[in-house]
C-alpha cells in the first residue's frame, strides 16, 4: 500500500516529446485508470512508474520517496502485461513463485503465498501446468497471481484485458476490481476502453497527446468534462458538437457547444433550438439512437431516446432541444468555459 506522486513528468524519445508534463497525486489504496486513445502515452507513463523507462524530467515519488533512478525490483511494484508475459518453460506455480524465489523468500512461505493466491484466483487445479496449456482467461489469472504473491505496494496494469473476448473481459474486470479493493493495494491501470475506465476507476486520468486533460471520478469526468477532447472521448455514443455561433444564446467566449446524446429531445419540425433531418435510426431495444443531419451544414447529431418512444422516419425534418444546464461550452482552445 502506498501513495504515488507524479510531479511534472516529461518524457522524450530522442527528439520526440511523448509526455508533456503530467501531475498526478494518487492516494493509498486508490484505483486509478489511465485512459486515452492509442499513442497518447499511457503505456509510457505506466512504464516510467514501473521503472522500465527512464524519466526525462520531473519526479516520481512512491510513499514520498523519489524513485526516478530506482530499479523496478526495488520499487516494490508488480506489473501485469498485455500479453501476460508468463515464462513459457515454467509451470503456473513456478511462474508465480519466481519473484519470491529471487527475493530469497523462505520456501515454506513461498508455497503458502502461492497457494493462497491460487485459491483466490481459482487456479489450484492448474498449478502444475505450463502457460501454453491454459486458456486466455487462465493465463490472465496467472499473471494476476504473479503480481499478488509479491504483496507489492503498487499494482500496474497495462491493458491486461485487451486480449480476452468480450464476456471474459467483463468477468475479469469484476475480479480485478474485487481483488484490488480486498487487498487494498494502490493500482494504476491503463486502458483505451472507456467502459473499463468508467467501471474500474476510483479516479480516472484522461490522457490526450501526452497531457493529462482531466483527472477525476468517472461520473464527475463524464458529467463535467473540462476539455472538448474529454467530452468527445468519454461517453458512447460520443457527445455532439456544434459551432457556438449556430446555437441561440450560447455563453460568451464559447466557440463550440457539446451536448450528450441523451440530453437531446426530438421535437416536431420548426420547434426547439436547431433543426435537421433524420438520416437513419438504430433501434437497440431499450433505447433508440437517432442520427440527424443538421440544417446548419455538415454537422451530424446523435440523439439517444427511450426505446418505447415512437421511431422517427428517415428523411423527416425535426427540431432538437436541450436544457441549458446540459450545454457544455468550450473555447477555441478546447477548454471548458
Amino acid at each position: 500500500m502506498a501513495t504515488i506522486k507524479l510531479d511534472n513528468i516529461k518524457k522524450s524519445f530522442g527528439k520526440t516529446d511523448v509526455i508533456h508534463g503530467v501531475n498526478i497525486d494518487i492516494e493509498d489504496g486508490e484505483f486509478i485508470v489511465i485512459v486515452g486513445p492509442s499513442g497518447c502515452g499511457k503505456s509510457t507513463l505506466l512504464r516510467m512508474v514501473a521503472g522500465l523507462e527512464t524519466v526525462t524530467s520531473g519526479e516520481i515519488l512512491i510513499d514520498g520517496a523519489q524513485v526516478n533512478g530506482v530499479e523496478p525490483m526495488d520499487r516494490d511494484i508488480a506489473m501485469v502485461f498485455q500479453n501476460y508475459a508468463l515464462y513459457p518453460h515454467m509451470s503456473v506455480e513456478e511462474n508465480m513463485a519466481y519473484g519470491l524465489k529471487i527475493a530469497k523468500t523462505p520456501k515454506a512461505e513461498i508455497t503458502e503465498r502461492v497457494a493462497e493466491a491460487a485459491r483466490m484466483l481459482q487456479l489450484e487445479p492448474y498449478l502444475k501446468r505450463k502457460p501454453r496449456e491454459l486458456s486466455g482467461g487462465q493465463r490472465q489469472r496467472v499473471a494476476m497471481g504473479r503480481a499478488i504473491v509479491r504483496k507489492p505496494k503498487v499494482f500496474l496494469f497495462d491493458e491486461p484485458l485487451s486480449n480476452l473476448d468480450a464476456k471474459l473481459r467483463v468477468q475479469m474486470r469484476l475480479e480485478i476490481k474485487e481483488l484490488q479493493s480486498r487487498l487494498g493495494i494502490t493500482a494504476l491501470y491503463v486502458t483505451h476502453d472507456q467502459v473499463e475506465a468508467m467501471t474500474l476507476a476510483d479516479r480516472m486520468v484522461v490522457m490526450n497527446g501526452g497531457v493529462a486533460d482531466q483527472i477525476g471520478a468517472p461520473l464527475e469526468v463524464y458529467s463535467n468534462p473540462q476539455t472538448e477532447f474529454v467530452a468527445g472521448f468519454i461517453g458512447s455514443p460520443a457527445t455532439n458538437f456544434i459551432d457556438a455561433a449556430l446555437v441561440p444564446d450560447a455563453p460568451k467566449g464559447a466557440s463550440k457547444i457539446g451536448i450528450r446524446p441523451e440530453h437531446i429531445t426530438l421535437l416536431p419540425s420548426g420547434q426547439g433550438k436547431l433543426s435537421g433531418n433524420v438520416v437513419f435510426t438504430e433501434a437497440l431495444g431499450a433505447e433508440t439512437l437517432v442520427h440527424l443531419r443538421m440544417d446548419s451544414g455538415t454537422e451530424t447529431f446523435t440523439v439517444r431516446q427511450d426505446g418505447a418512444m415512437a421511431l422517427p422516419v428517415a428523411g423527416d425534418p425535426v427540431g432538437v432541444d436541450w436544457g441549458a444546464d446540459d450545454e457544455m461550452a468550450f473555447n477555441d482552445k478546447g477548454r471548458r468555459v
Binding site: P72, N83, H89, Y98
Partner: peptide, 26 residues
C-alpha cells in the same frame, strides 16, 4: 517478446539471472 525480459526485471531478476533462468531454458 520484450515483455518477458521486462517481467523478469520487475520480478527482480538481474540480467544474468534472466539469462540463466529464462533465456537459456527457452
Amino acid at each position: 517478446p520484450d515483455e518477458l525480459a521486462e517481467a523478469a526485471r520487475v520480478d527482480g531478476a538481474r540480467p544474468m539471472r534472466f539469462f540463466w533462468d529464462i533465456l537459456l531454458p527457452m
